[in-house]
Design a protein around this nucleic acid. Structure first.
Length: 573
DNA sequence: GCCGTTTTCGGCCCGACTGTTTTCAGTCG
């Protein structure tokens, strides 16, 4: 069983953590982290690259030494360097780094002086007042660490994007009402439209005397003020979400927005370009010597380092800077490009609105078509349709279409893919449909090869069009089922099938990386809401977010096509 | 440990805040 890229990245990151605790050269530590990033962003498996004789040291951030170490990891599953370190430092020690306020230096002191190597011992020692006797620690630090260890724990808490929006919107409105405040925007991973956010980064530009920070900490949902200075403050809201506020003057707004939007890796890469040009880039602007030469807008900042504007969703240091330099940035798909929705439910199965209501709501949103794709019979809990009920629904849709204006209802079904890869309804009824959306709702735990073959077998059915929520993951609740996405995408391409980017906030499936893989392999995507109510039709933008993070352009999207083109694309052979 | 339109050696992104300190280390983003 070859070692996967994610495992290699994990070992490299782990090595970086231990090297850091050991007090190694910080740049050496960074080298391991950078290499781990490269590895986890690779579109192909290291094992296959090595097998093909590729030179790993040609990859960014990987030189002779790490290429050899990575080869060893892929071959053996181990890195001897890490094994050696773990002989004298307990393996659990690195987890202490997850406690806010504890970094490598303090973890080292805790281990060397008090023998602390896990959370329980840390909490016990803090309670006994033993931390305050250590150099660099005192009563206040001890109290902070104890509280952090007890409340935040080791688990990293992440908030789904849709939920973060509901928290951010009222706070932004509140801050915008402050005297002297000009602009308020949520930057960070929220602006990059990551599927989850760890915290909210809010940027405010204002006049010098505006009471932005004071008003921020006075917000009614603030439970705790972690830090507060003249230009920066951190609070914890009652729901546990951390919010950082940064205040900058208007002349710095663009530079600050770029800086606080990140990602960190993207920022570092851009800053290196600035350094190479003899400039300095920070959150206040681009400087030549002491003189600020840009900073008011992001476009200005990019221009000064010789780059066109790069959309926030692309700022991951995954090739966007090179693409920008070559003038090859994608023209990302936008919500306005979409002409319809290809996965929705009605009251016939588990939806809450009738077909007519769904069609009217879709038309209100500017759509020119909507596919009704109720569940098939196997999904009994959703009152799935058998062939007979589906046939009646098709008649109903025909009658509706006969007098509907401005929108066309497509006859579809979300057909269950059975354990053996067969579809849940016979060809006789599938033949009558405009669109077949296939999905897995059972047997999530099949081994990788079997699960992949199961789906490919379903795609062998000439009626199959779109694979819905292809990995089945529920963010923070259920892991994706184990499939070989590369193989699946190639099979879809060969068969004229498509994959869905599902907009449900707890699915967001495909994710951005998979969207990009689909584009590279040449498989078009359907950006679909999987709506179970008329209001759900507004979720479409979350699928657009995922697609944009995956470099998807309008031409890569099935439902960015006019109806006639779409119908052609849905006809297989 | 990586890397090269100043460099194969000597750099490596940069600033704010806290808490510990008497001028700064550690952490964070």
């Amino acid at each position: 069983m070859p070692v996967r890229n994610a495992e290699v990245a994990e070992i490299l990151n782990r090595t970086a953590e231990f090297l850091e605790i050991e007090g190694a050269n910080p740049f050496r530590v960074r080298a391991y982290r950078n290499a781990a990033r490269t590895v986890s962003a690779l579109p192909q498996s290291l094992a296959s690259m090595i097998e093909a004789g590729d030179d790993l040291s040609a990859l960014p951030a990987i030189g002779e030494d790490l290429a050899e170490k990575i080869a060893t990891i892929v071959e053996t599953g181990h890195l001897p360097l890490l094994d050696d370190i773990e002989k004298h430092l307990p393996p659990g020690l690195a987890r202490l780094l997850d406690v806010p306020g504890l970094g490598p230096k303090r973890v080292r002191v805790l281990h060397d002086e008090l023998g602390i190597d896990d959370l329980d011992k840390l909490i016990a020692a803090a309670k006994a007042g033993r931390l305050r006797r250590l150099p660099g620690f005192a009563a206040k630090t001890e109290a902070n660490i104890l509280r952090a260890a007890q409340t935040r724990g080791v688990e990293e808490r992440r908030t789904k994007l849709a939920e973060a929006e509901q928290i951010a919107d009222p706070l932004v409105r509140y801050l915008a009402e402050t005297r002297g405040v000009k602009k308020v925007i949520v930057a960070g991973s929220f602006r990059r439209r990551q599927e989850t956010v760890g915290d909210l980064d809010i940027l405010v530009s204002c006049t010098q005397d505006a009471p932005a920070v004071d008003r921020f900490v006075a917000y009614e949902d603030v439970a705790e003020v972690t830090s507060k200075g003249p230009t920066r403050s951190t609070v914890i809201l009652r729901n546990g979400l951390q919010v950082d506020l940064r205040v900058v003057p208007e002349v710095s707004y663009g530079a600050a927005l770029h800086y606080f939007t990140g990602s960190k890796a993207h920022n570092i890469a851009v800053r290196r370009i600035a350094v190479a040009k003899g400039l300095k880039l920070n959150e206040y602007g681009i400087f030549k010597g002491e003189k600020r030469i840009a900073g008011r807008s992001e476009t200005e900042v990019f221009a000064r380092v010789g780059l066109p504007y790069i959309e926030p969703e692309l700022r991951q240091d995954r090739g966007e800077i090179e693409a920008a330099r070559k003038g090859r940035l994608p023209k990302l798909v936008a919500l306005a490009d979409l002409r319809g929705d290809l996965h929705t439910h009605s009251t016939a199965s588990d939806g809450r609105a009738s077909i007519a209501e769904m069609a009217a709501a879709a038309r209100e949103r500017g759509h020119s078509y909507i596919a009704i794709t109720d569940h098939s019979k196997r999904v009994t809990i959703a009152h799935g349709l058998d062939a007979k009920r589906l046939a009646r629904q098709l008649d109903q849709i025909d009658r509706l279409n006969a007098h509907l204006r401005g929108i066309r209802v497509l006859k579809g079904c979300e057909v269950d893919i059975l354990g053996d890869g067969k579809l849940d309804l016979p060809a006789s009824i599938l033949r009558e449909l405009d669109i077949v959306v296939g999905a897995i709702h059972s047997k999530f735990d099949m081994p990788r090869a079997k699960q992949t073959e199961r789906i490919i077998r379903a795609m062998d059915n000439p009626r199959f069009n779109i694979l819905a929520h292809p990995t089945g993951r529920l963010i923070g609740e259920r892991a994706p089922y184990d499939i070989d996405m590369e193989r699946l995408l190639k099979a879809a391409r060969e068969r004229g099938c498509y994959l869905e980017a599902n907009a449900q906030p707890d699915r967001l499936d495909l994710n951005g990386a998979h969207c990009r893989m689909a584009k590279e392999i040449g498989v078009k995507l359907a950006l679909s809401t999987d709506a179970h109510s008329t209001a759900d039709l507004d979720l479409l933008r979350f699928a657009v977010d995922q697609a944009r993070r995956g470099w998807i352009e309008p031409g890569d999207v099935l439902n960015a096509r006019p109806l006639r083109d779409l119908m052609k694309l849905l006809k297989r052979s």
